[in-house]
């Protein structure tokens, strides 16, 4: 990224597999230097699935995946994200078939939400954990989600949902051809 003052420069983001080239500075700027990644995702790219609650890095609502890691998008400036690969809750489902991620389906099956506002952040924190550790213990899940504020107290159903997704994932991993075999 060109850092010269007062000139138009560009930030390249890959979001949910799609490339975006955003202009910083100048009269037609997409991004101001003060914009957080959360702001850009929501307001500039229209990806409002990412929720902002505290906007100060304390509640986990705005969690997205950056290079596969859970990050608080309210606490990153967009101009610092040049070249990064970002996944939001809108990117969890299969982009072609629309099939839900097993975590999403498990959240539906376990009613792992009440008001639902913190759910995207919780899903992304859980997804980041499973990418790193496909067989976490309940304690691992609790630790990974400990930065996510859930006010309705849906914690118990979330833990069940994540564990069920883990077990389903483990089952399909040990029997990769099971679906085909049943046909």
């Amino acid at each position: 990224m060109d850092r010269r003052r007062g000139e138009t420069r560009q930030v390249r983001l890959r979001v949910n597999g799609q490339d975006h080239v955003l202009t910083v500075g100048g009269p037609a700027a997409d991004v101001a230097v003060t914009h957080t990644l959360a702001h850009t995702l929501r307001e500039t790219l229209g990806l409002t699935g990412t929720k902002v609650s505290c906007d100060r890095g304390a509640c986990g609502s705005c969690t997205v995946l950056v290079g596969g890691e859970a990050k608080l998008s309210c606490s990153m400036l967009t101009v610092e994200c040049d070249g990064l690969d970002i996944t939001t809750v809108e990117g969890l489902a299969d982009p072609v078939t629309g099939a839900l991620d097993p975590l999403q389906q498990s959240f539906i099956d376990h009613t792992a939400f009440q008001c639902g506002y913190c759910t995207p952040g919780i899903l992304m924190s859980a997804k980041a954990l499973l990418l790193k550790n496909p067989r976490p213990t309940q304690a691992d899940v609790q630790e990974a989600l400990s930065g996510n504020f859930c006010r309705c107290i849906t914690h118990y159903h979330v833990l069940e949902a994540v564990q069920a997704a883990v077990e389903a994932g483990a089952a399909s991993a040990t029997a990769p051809d099971s679906r085909r075999a049943r046909r």
């Binding site: 929501r42 409002t48 699935g49 809750v89 809108e90 999403q104 959240f107 539906i108 939400f113 639902g116």
Partner: peptide, 19 residues
């Protein structure tokens, strides 16, 4: 039975006030 708004909530397409 699944909650009616469940697909929207887990895909981020539910519209809250802030959206």
């Amino acid at each position: 039975t699944p909650r009616r708004d469940a697909p929207q909530i887990v895909t981020g397409s539910a519209t809250f006030f802030g959206d």
